[in-house]
Amino acid sequence: MKVRKFAAIDIGSNAVRLLISNVLEVDGASPVFSKSSLVRVPIRLGTDVFLNGKVSDENAERLAESMKAFKLLMGVHKVEAYKACATSAMREAKNGEELTKLIKKKSGVQINIIDGSDEAAIIANTDLQALIEGDKAYLYVDVGGGSTEFTVYSNGETIASKSFKIGTVRILNEMVKHETWVEVEQWIRENTKDFSKISLIGSGGNINKIFKISGKKEGTPLTYKYLSSYYQFLMSFSYEERISILGLNQDRADVIIPAARIYISAMKWSKAIKIYVPKIGLSDGIVKSLYYSTIEGNKVVDTE
């Protein structure tokens, strides 16, 4: 038996995360992945980029300091290898490439700016495959701060996949046009119309939080009725009340509203009545792709 450690850094539009995972290798068995540590910093790069086109000096410094801290943590945990991926905000920032070079110089962390299709492909490396086996149809919805990835699965195969610039931070800053909502609706309806029965699979911090609050057992889906009712419940409180009365974190109390709206809309347009909420996301996909790349002998980024 051997335990190896890998890490993933997910630089999103709302928050920056460091996931450190243990990979248990036993002869004759599939590797077992388990979370060792998860650190989340709510820098909210999207607010800068979607409004002003670039990451502000203040948040650039916060991001650089976060990467320094993450590098130290990976060293303490004796992480074998890591990969850092930046999504919507960084790929749209005018100073995105410049910032990655600055952070590399300051912290030693190499950041890869990926597009929406790469993001969806990485997530597909997670335990999502275990959920989509069989003859059922699913619409996978990964809601981020700057974009949302939609993928339709049937009979264990990918039928269609697309990334839209419709995310929680964009919606909060009123930067999603009506036409974009229409485009998403048309895409979902068109790509799910042939399935008489379809379920959603939701990923992202907000749906994970809603699922946790529901008290449901892991593997049990939430219903369209429950999610719609909870959305109305959240809407009945002000931002301040969602923090003081409901106990939500400051950086969760606002984005949870538009996130719920996206999931509910996707369920409505696909005619799904259930949404499964496995704890998977970009970070999990990065770790798995990173691990398997070492097995195949491909080059990875080492922490030394």
Rank of each mutant, 00 (worst) to 15 (best):
K136P: 00
A86F: 04
K101F: 00
S107Q: 01
A93V: 04
V109D: 04
T87K: 06
D142S: 11
Y82C: 02
E92Q: 15
I103S: 08
K104S: 13
T100L: 00
G96D: 11
D127C: 03
T158I: 15
K136D: 14
E149R: 06
G96C: 02
G116A: 04
L128Y: 09
L128K: 02
V152R: 03
R91M: 05
E80A: 02
I159D: 00
R91A: 06
D127A: 12
E97L: 14
G156K: 12
V152G: 03
G96Q: 05
F164M: 05
I132R: 06
S147P: 04
G134L: 06
K78A: 13
L99G: 09
D142Y: 08
Y138H: 13
S163I: 01
A84D: 05
I113K: 09
A86E: 09
K105I: 04
N125H: 15
G156Q: 08
N95P: 05
K94I: 08
K78L: 12
I103R: 03
I103G: 05
A137Q: 01
E92F: 03
E80G: 03
C85T: 08
A120I: 08
V143E: 10
V79S: 05
S163H: 02
I122L: 15
K106G: 00
L102E: 15
Y138C: 05
A86C: 09
K83Y: 06
I103C: 07
A93N: 08
D115G: 07
V109T: 12
G145T: 00
I122K: 02
K105T: 12
V143T: 14
G134K: 12
G156S: 06
Y140T: 13
Y153S: 03
T148D: 02
A120N: 04
E119P: 07
D118A: 09
T158G: 00
Y82G: 02
A160K: 14
A137H: 02
F164N: 04
L131R: 12
K105Q: 15
S147K: 10
G146T: 02
K101T: 12
T126R: 03
Q129I: 09
A121V: 03
V143G: 07
A86T: 01
G96E: 09
I132G: 01
A130P: 00
M90G: 06
A130Y: 13
L139M: 05
N112R: 11
E92S: 11
A124R: 14
E92H: 14
E133N: 12
A124F: 12
T100Y: 00
A121W: 01
S88F: 01
E133V: 14
I132Y: 08
T126W: 08
N112L: 07
G144N: 10
L102M: 14
L139H: 10
E133D: 01
K106R: 15
L131Y: 15
E97Q: 14
Y140S: 12
T100G: 03
S117I: 12
F150I: 01
V143P: 10
K78M: 09
A86S: 11
T148V: 05
A81Y: 08
C85R: 13
Y140Q: 13
S107L: 05
L128S: 03
G145L: 10
S88T: 05
A84V: 04
A86L: 03
A84R: 06
K104P: 00
M90R: 06
I132D: 01
V141N: 07
T151I: 15
I159V: 15
I123P: 06
I123M: 11
K104T: 09
G146Q: 07
E98R: 09
I159L: 08
I122P: 04
